[in-house]
Design a protein around this nucleic acid. Sequence first.
DNA 1: CCCTATTTCTACGTTACGTAGAAAACTACT
DNA 2: AGTAGTTTTCTACGTAACGTAGAAATAGGG
Lengths: 128, 128
Amino acid sequence: MASLGELERAVMDLLWAGHEAATANTLRDLLAQDSAAVDGNAGHQGKDLAVTTVLTVLSRLEKKGLVERERGTRPHRYQAVSSRADHTAELMHEVLGSAPDREAVLARFIGSVTEGEAATLRKLLGYN
Amino acid sequence: MASLGELERAVMDLLWAGHEAATANTLRDLLAQDSAAVDGNAGHQGKDLAVTTVLTVLSRLEKKGLVERERGTRPHRYQAVSSRADHTAELMHEVLGSAPDREAVLARFIGSVTEGEAATLRKLLGYN
DNA sequence: CCCTATTTCTACGTTACGTAGAAAACTACT
DNA sequence: AGTAGTTTTCTACGTAACGTAGAAATAGGG
């Protein structure tokens, strides 16, 4: 239920970028950043969307619980509820799910992780 | 691109069950199993679907690359291309993606894993 | 009080999915 | 071979999600 469309993801990317810096974005900010992304960026094309389009997407993201909106200030301020890393990790858990074969899944998962990441994981799992 | 609908997942569950046993399922098999699932099973309701419905779903799953169909035999035989565990692990990697913050994601992910699973992971990662 | 920026409402096109009828292809039985 | 039953293909419709945006309502600023 937490899958994102292409544009939704693009918007979340902008909001996530601001999440680190605890930035509260206005619609204008987002549109500006989006246009700026035209240069260089391979992923999303800065398609010069209508403002209402982005607004709609923001509303949908809010309904999905991914975005929080400050309604007090006049240009409302939008921000990601959680960091991209948190969100992604949550998604991973969702995918892993409550299958009866969780451990088998983890085994396969670990099997195809880079050595560097394996090292990171060892560190994270603590020294037994 | 590999997200499944409710019915698609139900069908995959049947096929995955057969995957272990290297069983090649015919449409009849699947329908029978599905009806059988009416008893007890909490998840999917054995809704007594039309045969064509299941066929359609199987075709879509085939197009998605999740199901392989033997066209030689007359009642075609359907089977999951990979085990559920493999598929799920793959999905997890897909979610983890090629983000620049892969390690951060892994950190969050590990943070919310049960102790039993953590132990499993340690084992899988080798004694370091 | 009026203009402009912002937000809300409403809506349309596309695609994925659940669902299945009609028809075609094939098997089997007489 | 002819007919009946089974299996597969083709086509299609309804719903929901998402990209997209116009029209209208709202709120500040001068």
